[in-house]
């Protein structure tokens, strides 16, 4: 399989503290990958670098068939290239309806003038309805996003990401604060999504990761500690030490 994203030798420090230290990472197209690590391992900063929020001090990040460097691009440009990101805290536009949230996320021209003259076609409406179906919010299209429950917001956000049709999906702790049933639904959504795109899931919860049944990368102090199947990494002495303490 082709490599979709390659991060190599990336370092970043805040006021002398090295958040990411010579990190290298690769993911192929249509791959599902879990990234785990203790607090402060640099998981969020890692995502920030890929999405353009943080500029690294050194290293390369290349993406796509033509190996475009993401380092000089703005967040919106990176998103337009097909990198979607889901935040830890559900961030949907609570003041607007579920339908508006999804419509805004549909893969369309993003420039201000294109948006100004945009009027949804029947096809767009159908796509929104289909997405709502997928995330289980068909009946809630006209409701304000702010009225949804925590889990529903998480799904809405996943739905918005799917509407973007990203090639690479970065998901930050999707299962946090969910009921077991909701978790199961989330696992299914992610696995389904990974059939057509690359998905990186950052998670704390080992059980959840085990259920994803995919390759796992363990981060520690800003670099990769171990990589492999969930069983492989959980047997790794270093990983155990990092997670359980000495």
């Amino acid at each position: 399989m082709n490599t979709l994203l390659e991060v190599s030798g990336v370092s970043v420090s805040f006021d002398g503290f090295k958040a990411i230290n010579n990190l290298s990472f690769q993911i192929a197209e249509h791959e599902l990958r879990a990234v785990i690590g203790p607090n402060g391992a640099g998981k969020t900063t890692f995502m920030d670098i890929i999405t353009g929020k943080t500029r690294p001090d050194e290293g390369r990040v290349s993406y796509g068939d033509k190996s475009v460097s993401l380092l000089s691009l703005s967040e919106s440009r990176i998103a337009q290239l097909g990198v979607g990101r889901k935040f830890q805290r559900p961030t949907v536009f609570e003041d607007q309806s579920v339908g508006d949230n999804l419509m805004m996320s549909l893969k369309k021209e993003r420039g201000p003038f294109a948006v100004l003259v945009f009027r949804p076609s029947d096809k767009d409406r159908a796509r929104v309805a289909e997405l709502a179906e997928e995330i289980g919010l068909s009946g809630a299209l006209d409701r304000k996003a702010g009225e949804l429950s925590h889990g529903q917001k998480q799904w809405l956000e996943i739905g918005m990401l799917l509407a973007q049709e990203p090639r690479l999906l970065l998901v930050d702790e999707p299962a946090a604060g969910m009921t077991p049933a909701e978790r199961e639904h989330t696992t299914d959504l992610l696995k389904a999504a990974a059939k057509t795109r690359a998905v990186v899931v950052v998670e704390h919860d080992m059980e959840f990761v085990r259920r994803l049944d995919c390759k796992v990368t363990v981060l520690h102090e800003g670099s990769v500690l171990a990589e492999g199947s969930i069983d492989h990494v959980t047997r790794n002495e270093e990983v155990i030490e990092v997670y359980l303490g000495r």
Binding site: S76, Q96, R110, P112, F118
Partner: peptide, 29 residues
């Protein structure tokens, strides 16, 4: 329309709109 949707989204959470791929600065400008 969608333009209104986007600018209200910018008002409420600018960074999120950016990750949706909208050039926030262009809209604001």
């Amino acid at each position: 329309g969608k333009f209104g949707s986007v600018i209200r989204a910018i008002r409420d959470d600018e960074a999120r709109v950016r990750f949706l791929g909208y050039p926030v600065e262009g809209f604001k400008l």
